[in-house]
Computed example of a mutant assay.
Amino acid sequence: MRVIRKYANRRLYDTQQSRYVTLEDLRRLIIEEEPFRVEDAKSGEDLTRTILLSIIIEQEQADSEAEVFSNDLLAQLIRVYDMTSPLPLSRYLEQGTQLMLEQQKRLQSQWKQAMRNTPLEFMRELAEENMRFWQNTLNQPGQADESSDAEQPESDSNDTSKDNKPSS
């Protein structure tokens, strides 16, 4: 894993290439799926999240047409941090974004082979994949309480069948 050191003067130093880098250089590493870790040059503290957030801020400010985070969405995210029992938002965002990226790659690949399958068939497959993803996501641990509630009526129906036996 590539190590980037952040110095007190806010400069970033790529230890692998022995040169100073910019946030744009790090953005390119992300796009190229090159793993890296940003650490404080003095303490060794992991600053990767802070730098990743800085890259997002730069991108949001650079191109208002490519805005991903609206003011309303940002306000909602801030409210999530204030909840007494925060939602497992990170997991949903990661899985949802990964699914979206995979489908985008798949769509581009299918577009290149456009007439091999009909576009309608491809859209049906995407819709089914989305349904499976969200069903699996929503049925992961933490949903056990709801599934046990769903089983309750079945046990009640078994009890009533015993009551329907003729009494002596």
Rank of each mutant, 00 (worst) to 15 (best):
I4T: 00
L23A: 07
A75M: 09
S155W: 14
F69Q: 03
D25A: 05
N9C: 06
A144R: 12
L26W: 00
T160C: 07
Q95R: 11
I56R: 03
S155M: 11
I78M: 02
D25Q: 01
K165W: 12
D63M: 04
N164R: 10
Y20F: 15
K42P: 03
R2P: 05
L26P: 00
D163C: 05
Q103N: 10
A8F: 12
T15F: 04
L29G: 03
A62R: 15
P35Y: 05
R19Q: 08
L53W: 09
E151C: 09
S54W: 02
T97M: 07
Y13E: 00
E67Y: 08
P141S: 06
R132P: 00
A144S: 14
S148H: 04
Q152C: 05
N164P: 00
I55S: 02
R27W: 01
A114G: 11
T50F: 13
L126W: 06
E102V: 04
D63P: 02
S90G: 13
R106K: 07
S148W: 07
S167K: 12
L12Q: 01
T97L: 15
R11L: 15
A75D: 13
S147C: 12
P86E: 05
A144Y: 09
N139I: 03
M1Y: 03
P35T: 06
S155V: 14
E45V: 15
T48G: 02
Y13S: 02
N164F: 09
L26Y: 00
S18E: 10
V38C: 01
W111P: 00
R27D: 01
D82Y: 14
Q113L: 14
P88E: 07
K162D: 07
Y20H: 15
E154S: 10
A144H: 13
L26I: 06
S155N: 04
E60S: 04
